[in-house]
Write a protein that binds this DNA or RNA. Sequence first.
DNA 1: TCTATCATGTAACCAGTTACATGATTTT
DNA 2: AAAATCATGTAACTGGTTACATGATAGA
Lengths: 205, 205
Amino acid sequence: MAKRKVSNLLALAVLSLLNERPMHPYEIGAVMRQRGLADSIKINTGSLYSVTEALVRNQLIEPVETLRDTKHPERTVYAVTPAGRTEFLEWLRSLIRTPFKEYPQFAAGLAFMGHLAPREAVALLAERCKLLAADVAEIRSAIEATAKFVDRLFLIEQEYSLTMREAEVKWLHQLIERIKDGTFTEQKGEQSAWKITHPDPMRPH
Amino acid sequence: MAKRKVSNLLALAVLSLLNERPMHPYEIGAVMRQRGLADSIKINTGSLYSVTEALVRNQLIEPVETLRDTKHPERTVYAVTPAGRTEFLEWLRSLIRTPFKEYPQFAAGLAFMGHLAPREAVALLAERCKLLAADVAEIRSAIEATAKFVDRLFLIEQEYSLTMREAEVKWLHQLIERIKDGTFTEQKGEQSAWKITHPDPMRPH
DNA sequence: TCTATCATGTAACCAGTTACATGATTTT
DNA sequence: AAAATCATGTAACTGGTTACATGATAGA
């Protein structure tokens, strides 16, 4: 799977919106926010412009006109090219079909959890549970609210994110219980496993 | 929450390993791989060195000796400083306690799924399901295998990742069903919702 | 009228990635 | 003994972020 020339997900959004009608970068950002896309794709004003440039360099979009009124700085309006449309669809298909290896921050935290005392670990995990539960509630009500105006089809990402968080909360609860009941601190007899050990400290030469 | 001066998760791993004993960067990478940390933290050889430099700049680690034999290039061995230990623990706590806003690739894909025909969307989602299921099986057996040697405590990240994937698979199945049975294509009467619509195309000025 | 915020963009900076380099081992 | 791979690192490049700039509108 050869690298995509422009890989920032913002570029995907740009292609998608320019598919509807030509716009200038600032407008793209504004529309994205209106539609709640900012929740699933990170928008930095700066990145909007660098991504746009990159798309132009690769002939996936092209400038079509420059607006010049006294109210604003010059604004360049872009439109998608045929190559851009193709790229958009291929990219989209690939995002949906192929799971992408990611490295969530929490996984790294978990990997080193053994460095903390069990008591503290439990407290932190419980706290995370609370925060996540709040997130869940928030997303849920955001969906409810938006669903009156917008088709469910355009809320799937939110639903997805909701589902994932719920799954995490559930797992966290179980984990906390397991720590409390000693599953992790006592094991096969006396061995207290909750300390840093070196599974096999054989070093490279 | 002020920015961390070195934020790459590789740096967390470096701090953690140097907490055990001084090492040189290449060795750090090797040990990480042995322990399966490479699954939760992305290792680029290059990044190992830039991260190390950054940690030195911030006095979280320091060079302790330079090995010079004829077999290898010079190797600089680093040790963690007291400040580094503190930083490590604070960082770790924060990773566990506070959910971090992330932008998974798949969410972006979902957000634009409406650009594809329902038929195709279903096919792609089904394919993803298959691939994910394979992942799940793989992780599961990796855990089984490693659990003979290593304490469960050091496999929690794997367990976490497993759980999340399983949750995704389950959700995907439901989604596919809902698309097939028309939940997304017909809705409140005749309206065919599966097309690009503009929820509220009011543009900024 | 003063201050804040919006609308819009430029430009410098930097973290992190990719590509390259090089001498030892190991494999064929 | 040629080819491949390991061990180790340097250096150039670049995508993306942060910081800054500036005129217009709106609120106090």
